[in-house]
Design a protein around this nucleic acid. Sequence first.
RNA 1: GCUGCUAUAGUGUAGUCCGGCCAAUCAUGCGGGCCUUUCACGCCCGCGACUGGGGUUCGAAUCCCCAUAGCAGCACCA
Length: 486
Amino acid sequence: MYASLSEKHEHKKVLPDLEKSEKGVVMRFAPNPSGPLHIGHARAAALNDAYVKQYGGRYILRIEDTDPKRVDPEAYEMVREDISWLGLGITETVTQSDRFSLYYDLCMQLIERGGAYVCTCDNEHFRELKQAKTACPCRDLPVATNLERWQKMLDHEFKEGEASVRIRTDLDNPDPAMRDFPAFRILDAPPHPKVKAHVYPLMNFSVVADDHLLGVTHVIRGKDHIANTRRQKYIYDHFGWQVPVYRHYGRMGIEGVVLSTSQMRLGINEGTYTGWDDIRLGTLRALARRGICPEAVKNAMLAIGIGDTDISFSWDNLYAENRKIVDPVANRYFFVPDPITVTIEGAAPHTAHAMLHPGDTARGTRTLEFDGSVLLPKSEISPGTSMVRLKDLFNVKIVWDGNIPSFSYGGDSLAEARAVKAPIIQWLPAQAAVPCTLLTQEGEMKGVCEPLVGAELDRVVQFERIGFARIDSVDASGIRAYFTHK
RNA sequence: GCUGCUAUAGUGUAGUCCGGCCAAUCAUGCGGGCCUUUCACGCCCGCGACUGGGGUUCGAAUCCCCAUAGCAGCACCA
């Protein structure tokens, strides 16, 4: 009985089983190095990671840099950093630009098998033929001719746009997307930052080649790849290779942040964003800067799972995951936004001892010395407020003369403050407050905080009654913190 | 236009394959209460959904058909 109770209590989100996983799995995460990773990438990264951990096996990071137009040389390093931050169990890394000769080899073999041909047709013309389910003249050329043409491609005798390799599929396939799709193209420019080439494999070819060569057993990717999966099966069949198990999860809409790499880049160049880690962006480094933990990101992604329905990602759910992680560890401090200086009449010096964490008394206290005047959040003091309690200190009576308040000592009794429902607010000694800027996605909040916060650099703290924040920088001019969430 | 995928509360998710135990799970959110020198955490109570219409059946969230809506592909991007 107790067993079943605790079982239910510890109910953990488990991903649905994958078939053919008994002997372990080989999976891969395959980003394109066009920029840093964002929350959308995290889904594929986390799901594959979780399955490899569940079944055991290898987890390959494959950098898919086969399109020189979409390669940012700096992104290789950024992707590496982001993956390391996420804490994926990557067991090996391959970069496709290192493997062009493998693809060329396989292409030749495929042509020899009659599974591919070199097409020199004009693009527009080919499209019309395709719509009409008609073979282009190149399709029926003998293998020997195709091999010659392939050699001419490699020798750069064909220029950009003059020839491409196509996979022989089924012209009668009702889906026009399946008919003789391209596998290699020629690009004269731009140069690839990592490899000297003009013949480039297209994704459907290089992906099949590598999935097979690397022994990938299961592929989990977005359903935008569902057509690619069907196309890729033609290549597997031509080679007689075994097809991996595929799962396609639905589209994930993400509100409120910019995710498109090109838009982000543009915004950075124009100065709209401070960089790839601008907190208004959905990059992993932006989340990190705000104090979102990698485990929270992964947990949120696993909770979403691999369903094939289109979903809209909810920040609330991610924040809830993060709060579970951060709340038990974050020290508590006072941050007074938009402070006003107030002198309190009739109060003797007091020393306040506020707990660093109310759930963990062993952590001790911060000490705040009261000596006559304090800083209070302006928004808490408005006509009609007759008493507030300064948290961990004492009560303050407020008397209003029109719009002019005067403050006086109101006793130490917490019970009295409760009795009149006085708000218990954060405060700082006027003499011991450090300038602090809290940056949120909506803008800056200027204020002051406890000096001790300076020792929390790079950690997440909780500003009482405000929310969690990551301390981003500490210097002579003050502290800068990024708002995490409530 | 052609091809394909999907449709459970505000959001995510379980159940759908093998119809009844589902007047539908869990989380998050929201409302209320308790606890508490934070509007955090914790605890309690509540709110809230099977896209619509037909059909099969003793019985349908679950099977079939149609409709509607959303998404994806038809790139020399990944």
